[in-house]
Amino acid sequence: MIRTEGLTKVFRVGFWGRKVTALSYLNLQVNEKEIFGFLGPNGAGKTTTLKLLMGLIYPTSGRAWLLGRELTNAAVKKEIGFLPEAPYFYDYLTAHEFLRFYGGLFEIEKNLLKGRIERLLEMVGLSDNRHLPLGKFSKGMLQRIGIAQALINDPRLVILDEPMSGLDPIGRREIRDIILKLRSDGKTVFFSSHILSDAEMICDRVGILNRGKLINVGRLDEILEARLKYIEVIAEGVGAEVVSKIDKGVMTAGDRIIMRLGNEQQVNEVIELTSKMNGKVISIIPQKESLEDYFIKEVGTN
């Protein structure tokens, strides 16, 4: 659905035209019907990438294809929906006028458009505010009407720039639900975010970008698999003898002892000891690294 080859953008900033590389040699592939999260800290080049894909800025070098066609063709955009970062819309338009205007840009047939606007307003929960000017919308409402405009053409590929930033937990959840619904409708979603927990919940695959370079890409469980942090064992009715066997991470909570063990051999030892002492193992939970831990480690060391 999306493919880039050596996509590079160098900006010239300031009076002397100092060169700043915002994105360097990005090779990326997004497959059909997946949710792809494009992650990275602020200033990593996420928005630059999306703007390049949408033809808002031109690449310094490299090429990109959307839906198998090169970007220079405006017709490609017929099947794409785009939500920019922190969108500002026409304050003077009402929600309904706004969607009608964007529908007009796709030259959607009038009756078809009418039904679609109703459905989209319903889907993003703005049916009651259809005649309110966008200037009076809250941030969450703007984000939702922004998603509605991105879907006005019933696109196959939806590109969202930071769809969840600046929203409260309920708003973020609503956006997550919308994205999941898009996938179940058979659409491909490509979105950028720095809110990792959200990405972790919904993405099939992620790409991690830092300082203009793609540092990892793949399925989330693959990226995080090899990174078992510890195994948490909770046991009851065991004495200090067990505890002395373990060198780190012991906490007591009432009768219970919470142990953090490094590997399975240690776990077996603890279980054996516990049963010998007529204690009880309550739970054994392997703790994997979260995307956030990974992120801080990777991005922080760079």
């Binding site: 033809g55 955009k77 920019p84 969108p87 964007y102 840009l105 053409n153």
Partner: peptide, 14 residues
Amino acid sequence: EKKTIYTIISKPIY
């Protein structure tokens, strides 16, 4: 300046 153009140019319009 208000970035409204982002949503326009990303539509199939030259």
